[in-house]
Design a protein around this nucleic acid. Sequence first.
DNA 1: TAGATTGTTAATCGATTAACAATC
DNA 2: TAGATTGTTAATCGATTAACAATC
Lengths: 213, 213
Amino acid sequence: MSKNTISNSVIRRLPRYHRFLGELEANGYVRISSRELAEKMGLTASQIRQDFNCFGEFGQQGYGYNVSALRGEIGRILGLDRVTPMILLGAGNLGRAIASHIDFRSKGFELVGIFDASKEIIGRKIGDITVSDISGLDSFCREAEPKGAVLCIPKEAAAKEVERLIGLGIKAFWNFTHYDLRIDHADIAVENVHLGDSLATLSYRLNPDSNVC
Amino acid sequence: MSKNTISNSVIRRLPRYHRFLGELEANGYVRISSRELAEKMGLTASQIRQDFNCFGEFGQQGYGYNVSALRGEIGRILGLDRVTPMILLGAGNLGRAIASHIDFRSKGFELVGIFDASKEIIGRKIGDITVSDISGLDSFCREAEPKGAVLCIPKEAAAKEVERLIGLGIKAFWNFTHYDLRIDHADIAVENVHLGDSLATLSYRLNPDSNVC
DNA sequence: TAGATTGTTAATCGATTAACAATC
DNA sequence: TAGATTGTTAATCGATTAACAATC
């Protein structure tokens, strides 16, 4: 038994556990102890056991954890066994790369439509999806009922499109826009990516603390 | 005066301050108080003042902060005024998108070379850079002396290439590989991106806590 | 059974928030 | 000067680590 809401820190570690366990499984591991997993991941055994105990008792005293079963549990917790329909807005460089590079299926989603406003891009094929005119977004959503949206549109268009998408039933936003998406509705999930911020922190680390007073 | 090492939490907030201050400046703001900035960013005024005081005294009692000066200071702290040469390895979908989509200059870097192993991709132009054969990496690095590297190569190649790049003088890795880069050398900076993990947490948030016991 | 390792409680550490004197 | 708001110290909160009894 544990507290009934999961902290952000824990949630952010779950996909990483899932990945490491997948690799262990691929390398033939059947069982693993929290101590050994901690070593491989650069965490402490305590933290790993605390994290897992938010969701249940997945191990066995004296034995450890079954790699495959544990991975299955974490996948289920993350909802990776679901297939939530998702659309992508903005098929520029980044949008096209996300559409073709990301394995949506293994992350709990399925990309079902790609939309853009530019005449040069509409009609192009990305994987097996043809880029549609954004003017057709409403009717598409009423039919396909996507629940997620990837935003790769220009910053200026973001706020307006988000309003519209919420009206069309979108519940999860994966936002690559240079715009900090913050939504009040409690039932809408947002993940802001901000690759530029990520690169800026790397710049800091290249010469850390030289400005500390 | 403050502690002489900056916590990760603070560092991760710096680029966001920088972005918000840029927007405020563009909107004609000259001064701002910690209270008002906190409101706009969804933080507390205390946290903002604590964060800034890691680096110095940038405000003025009774007045607040000068938007433009504060933004300048944070940019300097992040090292965005430097121009560190950077190369990119792996010009697939994602690599090409990063190369053309990211504004390296405003993040303290400059993209000076793109490398790939595939015959179909070598010779292609991305922006004003021609993709080079990865076999020429060593001689290129000896001449151009890049200090940063973006990794968009397959997971399998990552570990080996990183070793090589360290030998060639690379000090900062921006890693998009499905591989958790962890380096012991204290003078080498790593930023792991893991877009898949980001999407997986969105999947969790779509149906949170349904698995909490 | 003895050894190992979990699940869980208690202790520690660090980050965030609150409070307020300093000062512009 | 009076009002506002910082810089900074103290209090609180949350997350990580340590410890250990439970148990496989």
